[in-house]
Design a protein around this nucleic acid. Structure first.
Lengths: 126, 126
DNA sequence: GCAGAATGCTACGATTATTGTAGCAAGGGA
DNA sequence: TCCCTTGCTACAATAATCGTAGCATTCTGC
């Protein structure tokens, strides 16, 4: 891919710990050269753990550590990276009470993704 | 991830070129430790270009090269890898006339994914 | 037949992304 | 204050992905 310059998720300036600091800026999403939102979305969702993260938050908020464990103990590095991207995309956010949860948009997206579950069950039988 | 051993898509023994040779074996999909199909599916779809490939084939078959171009000229290596995985998952196949197309299951999956398009349009407006 | 183009697919070195382990600083409770 | 949790980061190691080039086979037109 010489396509779009890759990753850089702009780990915010390491400003210690302060809840709801700011959504962490991030690049305009790969694969969005055409400007077609669907491509940007497919690219965003096509990054490792992204779909899984959304899925795990489908019916509850989770702290960063709980989220990590829910995702088969994925590396905190990548979970944080993905979370930053998803926050930048306004699909997920750190809620005031603590823990990550889906935003309204995130819930909308999940609504679309939910049928995947049934499909997966059918699909299992080859 | 010490999770599941990763990739190995078993580039078949380089048996020259013979159409519809065999679906190319592939590992049981990462993230499937729990055996829950949804996890396997999310993992499969969460690999780079997978969603895009399915999307590009949504309404037409494409030759390997055309598919590659449709995917922002992604590397043939990765396209072939993804195609092999998707064939192993019976979501896509090389049709006798040449070119790749979705299988029945693949079309079912796409049916589920189509609403993503509308969501993406709404989502664009932050 | 046979050159030429197209197809599915691979090799391989170079880059990036992802992993795993460890740990920091700030906030909360007792 | 001590302790525990939270969000988040550093960093070296490993694995995935990229880009370029090219092979063998099939198809086409001649």
């Amino acid at each position: 891919m010489a396509k779009t310059t890759r990753r850089a998720v702009a780990t915010p300036p390491a400003q210690g710990h302060k809840r709801n600091a700011r959504p962490a800026k991030s690049p305009p999403v790969r694969g969005s050269r055409t400007g077609r939102p669907i491509m940007a979305l497919l690219d965003l969702l096509g990054r490792r753990w992204t779909l899984r993260i959304l899925w795990e938050l489908r019916e509850r908020s989770l702290t960063s550590r709980a989220l990590r464990e829910a995702c088969d103990d994925a590396s905190p590095t990548i979970i944080q990276t993905r979370v930053a991207e998803l926050r930048a995309a306004y699909l997920l956010d750190l809620n005031p009470a603590g823990g990550y949860g889906l935003t309204a948009a995130g819930k909308e997206l999940l609504e679309v993704l939910l049928p995947l579950h049934q499909f997966a069950e059918r699909w299992r039988k080859q």
